[in-house]
Design a protein around this nucleic acid. Sequence first.
DNA 1: TCCAGATTAGCACTTGGTATTAATACTAAG
DNA 2: CTTAGTATTAATACCAAGTGCTAATCTGGA
Lengths: 190, 190
Amino acid sequence: MRVPKQERQQLLVTLLKEDPFLTDEDIARHFSVSIQTVRLDRLECHIPELRERLKSVASQQMLGTVKSMQAEEIFGEIIDVELDDKAISIFDVQDVHVFKRNGIARGHHLFAQANSLAVAVLDDDLALTVRSSLHFQKPVRAGDRVVSRATVRKETLKNKSTVVDVLSTVESDPVFSGEFQMYRTTKKGG
Amino acid sequence: MRVPKQERQQLLVTLLKEDPFLTDEDIARHFSVSIQTVRLDRLECHIPELRERLKSVASQQMLGTVKSMQAEEIFGEIIDVELDDKAISIFDVQDVHVFKRNGIARGHHLFAQANSLAVAVLDDDLALTVRSSLHFQKPVRAGDRVVSRATVRKETLKNKSTVVDVLSTVESDPVFSGEFQMYRTTKKGG
DNA sequence: TCCAGATTAGCACTTGGTATTAATACTAAG
DNA sequence: CTTAGTATTAATACCAAGTGCTAATCTGGA
């Protein structure tokens, strides 16, 4: 007996956690036991077969892709834009956006939504945030739908920059406001 | 003929991109054709069978686990903290953090790093950003390593809030500075 | 009408299993 | 030594989801 049964089964669990792609045959070779033994081991440890393992790993990937696709672009699903005038975006706050400790949305997500919107409403080749001042007025929680409204101030500053005001609300309740001084190079700005 | 062959094959590609878990039988039902037709389609389009698809999706997941772990927490890998005094974090800017158009880092990542650091240096059960003013001083690009330094102002405001100053630099060059007024409930703050 | 391409059917074979039953090996206790 | 009990191995039938191949059928257009 190379390795006692119990130890082997524990090793099996960690082995498959690291590499779920192993067939029973691979595993059998790895432990120098028969395929049947491996199957008994899996049975006792409630470890599913290769295909089921891959299925579950793959499904996590699919869940992940949706999330990460959102995660990249979610900071404002922009639903309306009038260039150089105003724009609106919505952001559905999910569990991943909040502090585990108190369930309140991390500030940078609200900032990201507002900032992205400020960039989008100008839509220049190069629109960068230079300065901004923010006010986090009320905590936002998972499940809240944050609606951001950006308005571009008509006065253009001397140095190629524009000011965008953003107000974010949850059910008409202001939760965040920010003033973004944006630098721009092309179009109406220069 | 429900859908002409070519169109069906194109649809097949996008269908399996969205849901790689479909068996040939599922697909056959979906297009109202025979399983054999589906197999010919896959053959012509070089689409591998279900198991191979899952294998490749799963392997991407295994590669991705490491990356996504980083990706979630990346907004400041905090390398030093002295509670209620100062803290330092680093943030390696990657391609995903920059605008495709001009290669400049999106502002909210810099904000996220600074804001996270401001939260971390206080480390209260409830530390929230109330107000902040920011200055994006210099564009940051992929490959840059942003070092953020947070310092807690000693004067505590009347209303349970504290001010944290954050300065971010790339190779000693200031790129971002921010002032964060933080609300806190427990410990030294109340 | 006839033909080519598209579609469908049928069969043998492959992988990586499940499920079950039986045989063997290796102890530990009486 | 025998016997019970566990661990291991073997053998068999079966399944899902395919591949590969051949053959038949449909179907639209010159």
